[in-house]
Amino acid sequence: MTMYAALLRGINVGGNRKIPMAGLRALLEDLGHEGVRTYLQSGQAVFAAGGGDEESLAARLTEAIEERFGFTVDVIVRDHAYLRAVAEACPFPSAELEGRQLHVTYFSAPVDASRFAEIDRAARLPEEFRLGDRVLYLYAPNGLGRSQLATDLARPRLTKGLIATTRNWNTVVKLVELTRE
């Protein structure tokens, strides 16, 4: 069995697209997964699966959510080894920063730096971003809510054709812990 994290995009925000975490846990168990746990209300679940790959697990969960809850949710599934590698590869001094200052955007597929070439990085300093393996690391010293760079990065044309979902560093670290095999 491999431990995975499911990252659901845009649920339980502003009273829209509500999925109770107990309902999400039950759904994952109904899909045959074991060791199911959720983290916070913003769409993280961990589970053990004996078969499938990240893409097929995400597709099946997306389909099951639509069947049970009546709306579509974008889902990214990643295994423990990948989550750990993302945390270890952080290009910013994560141990020295508050969780609200560092964020990771997970992408459904690899991204090329050319997608972000139009962003004037110098104009957004001290905020910075770096790309990794299907992720973007964002350093926003005043938090995501005040980040002009985060606004620039969220432009739909920059993520066209991808699922993208962002988590703060505390959640990144917690998901590594929760998926530890």
Results as ranks from 00 to 15, higher is better:
Thr2Glu: 11
Met3Ala: 13
Met3Phe: 11
Ala5Leu: 12
Ala6Trp: 05
Leu7Ala: 04
Leu8Glu: 02
Arg9Ile: 00
Gly10Ala: 15
Ile11Glu: 09
Ile11Val: 15
Val13Ala: 06
Gly15Ile: 09
Lys18Asp: 03
Lys18Gly: 04
Pro20Ser: 13
Met21Trp: 06
Met21Gly: 01
Ala22Thr: 15
Leu24Pro: 05
Arg25Ala: 11
Ala26Ile: 02
Leu27Gln: 13
Leu28Val: 08
Leu31Cys: 08
Glu34Ala: 14
Glu34Trp: 04
Gly35Ala: 11
Val36Asp: 14
Thr38Arg: 09
Ala45Pro: 09
Val46Asp: 13
Ala48His: 10
Gly51Thr: 12
Gly51Phe: 07
Gly52Tyr: 08
Gly52Trp: 05
Glu55Arg: 13
Ala59Glu: 15
Ala59Met: 10
Ala59Val: 10
Ile65Ser: 06
Glu66Lys: 12
Glu67Lys: 15
Glu67Asp: 15
Phe69Asn: 04
Phe71Ile: 09
Ile76Asp: 08
Val77Gln: 00
Ala81Phe: 00
Leu83Gly: 06
Val86Tyr: 00
Glu88His: 08
Glu88Ile: 07
Pro93Gln: 03
Ser94Ile: 01
Glu96Leu: 04
Arg100Asp: 09
Arg100Phe: 14
Leu102Val: 05
His103Asn: 04
Ser108Pro: 02
Val111Arg: 00
Ala113His: 08
Ser114Leu: 11
Phe116Ala: 09
Ile119Thr: 04
Asp120Val: 01
Asp120Arg: 03
Asp120Leu: 03
Arg121Tyr: 09
Ala123Met: 00
Ala123Thr: 03
Pro126Asp: 12
Glu127Arg: 01
Arg130Gln: 10
Leu131Asn: 08
Asp133Ser: 12
Tyr139Asp: 04
Ala140Pro: 00
Gly145Ile: 05
Gln148Ala: 13
Leu149Arg: 02
Leu149Ser: 04
Asp152Glu: 15
Leu153Thr: 05
Ala154Trp: 00
Pro156Val: 02
Arg157Cys: 11
Leu158Thr: 02
Lys160Trp: 13
Lys160Phe: 14
Leu162Val: 08
Ile163Val: 15
Thr165Ile: 11
Thr166Leu: 07
Arg167Lys: 10
Trp169Ile: 01
Trp169Asp: 00
Val173Asp: 01
Glu177Asp: 15
Arg180Ile: 03
Glu181Tyr: 07
Glu181Gln: 12
